[in-house]
C-alpha cells in the first residue's frame, strides 16, 4: 500500500506552490475505531483458540487434589511432572500397564514406513501421470480422486477380507498398506500438479539424450522436487499419526497406534479418573503433529492449500 504515499509525493514534487493546510498522506491514527475493532476481535479469537491448549498444559502439571479444589484456568500452585511420567510409562489399557509409550512406538512403526511408501508410490504415480501419459491414465486418476470422497466406512470390510486373504489382518504391515492406499489420492494429486508445473523442455531434453523412465525420475525429477516432498511428508505424517479409524479396525490391542490407546486410557470406565494423567497423555499424543506444525509453518499451509484447492 505504498500508493497514497507515492501520489502525495508526486503532487508535492510537481507543484512548488505553497499549499494551505497540512501536506502529505492523511495520517492514520493507530487507535482508530477500525483498528480497535480488528485487533480486539483477533485478540479475543486468539485467546479462544489458545485456551484449550493452555488448560491442557496447566491441568497436566497439577496434582489431583489441586484439580478437585481449583479452577481449570488457574495456573498450578505446585508444578508436578508425575502425571507425565505416569501417562508415558504406567497408565493402563486393559491388562497392559506400560503407559502410552507402547502406543507411541507402535505409531512410529506405522507412520515411518507408511509415509515413506506412500510418498514413493504416489510420486511415481504423479510422475507417470504428468510426463508419461498412457491411454486410460486419466480415467484411473479420476477414479482415484473421486475415491478420496468415498466414506471410508464403505471400503472398510472389503479391505478386511483382502488383508485376511494375504495374512496381514491385525498386523502393522496391513495397516501400512491401508495408509498407503488412502493416502494415494491426495499425494498423487500433489505430485502430479507439481511435476506438470515443471518446464517440459527439461523432460524432453532428457528424452532426447536417451534417458528412460527411472533415470529421469531419479536424476532430474527427484532433485528438483524436494520442497514438494517435504509438503507431502507433512501431510502424511500428520494424517497418519492422527488416524484413529484404521488403527482401531486393522490392528489388535498389542499393535494399537497411539490415538487408539489414548482413547482407551482416557475413556476407560474402570478406576478413578485421573484428569491430570489424561491431559498429559492427550498432549503427548498431540505433540508430534503440533511440533511438525509449528516447525514447518508456511509449508503446512501450503500442503493443505495444495490438497484442498482443486481437490
Amino acid at each position: 500500500m505504498a500508493n497514497p504515499a507515492t501520489i502525495s509525493t508526486a503532487v508535492a514534487g510537481a507543484d512548488t506552490l505553497p499549499l494551505d493546510g497540512p501536506q502529505g498522506p492523511r495520517p492514520r491514527p493507530r487507535l482508530s475505531r477500525r483498528n480497535i475493532f480488528i485487533y480486539g476481535t483477533m485478540l479475543v479469537v486468539a485467546v479462544y483458540y489458545l485456551l484449550p491448549l493452555y488448560v491442557m498444559i496447566v491441568t497436566s502439571l497439577k496434582g489431583m487434589p489441586e484439580i478437585r479444589l481449583g479452577n481449570i484456568f488457574s495456573p498450578p500452585m505446585e508444578i508436578t511432572f508425575e502425571p507425565w511420567v505416569k501417562a508415558w510409562a504406567e497408565a493402563c489399557t486393559g491388562l497392559n500397564c506400560d503407559g502410552l509409550s507402547r502406543g507411541f512406538w507402535n505409531s512410529v512403526k506405522i507412520t515411518v514406513p507408511s509415509v515413506f511408501l506412500s510418498i514413493a508410490v504416489a510420486s511415481v504415480n504423479g510422475y507417470a501421470l504428468s510426463n508419461w501419459k498412457f491411454k486410460g491414465a486419466d480415467i484411473f486418476f479420476t477414479i482415484l480422486i473421486f475415491g478420496a470422497f468415498i466414506p471410508y466406512q464403505v471400503m472398510l470390510y472389503p479391505i478386511v477380507i483382502i488383508l485376511r486373504e494375504i495374512g496381514l489382518y491385525g498386523s502393522l504391515g496391513g495397516l501400512v498398506i491401508v495408509h498407503v492406499i488412502f493416502g494415494m489420492p491426495i499425494v498423487t494429486l500433489l505430485f502430479r500438479n507439481y511435476f506438470a508445473s515443471l518446464p517440459e523442455e527439461l523432460f524432453k531434453a532428457a528424452r532426447v539424450d536417451g534417458a528412460g523412465f527411472w533415470q529421469i525420475y531419479f536424476q532430474i525429477m527427484l532433485p528438483m522436487s524436494l520442497p514438494i516432498f517435504v509438503v507431502a511428508m507433512i501431510i502424511q505424517v500428520t494424517g497418519i499419526w492422527n488416524d484413529f479409524l484404521f488403527g482401531v479396525v486393522y490392528t489388535k490391542p498389542d499393535t494399537y497406534p497411539m490415538t487408539v490407546q489414548l482413547n482407551n486410557i482416557v475413556n476407560s470406565v474402570q478406576g478413578v479418573k485421573e484428569y491430570n494423567v489424561n491431559m498429559a497423555a492427550t498432549i503427548l499424543t498431540g505433540l508430534v503433529p503440533l511440533v511438525i506444525y509449528f516447525v514447518s509453518g508456511k509449508l503446512f499451509v501450503r500442503g493443505i492449500a495444495a490438497g484442498a484447492v482443486k481437490g
Binding site: 483458540y49 484413529f244 490415538t259 484428569y275 489424561n278 498431540g286 503440533l290 506444525y293
Partner: peptide, 17 residues
C-alpha cells in the same frame, strides 16, 4: 493449530473443558 491435532485429541480436550 487445532487443525493439526487429531479428532481424538480434540474430543478429549473438549470433554475436559
Amino acid at each position: 493449530y487445532p487443525f493439526a491435532l487429531s479428532f481424538i485429541v480434540t474430543g478429549l480436550i473438549w470433554q475436559w473443558l
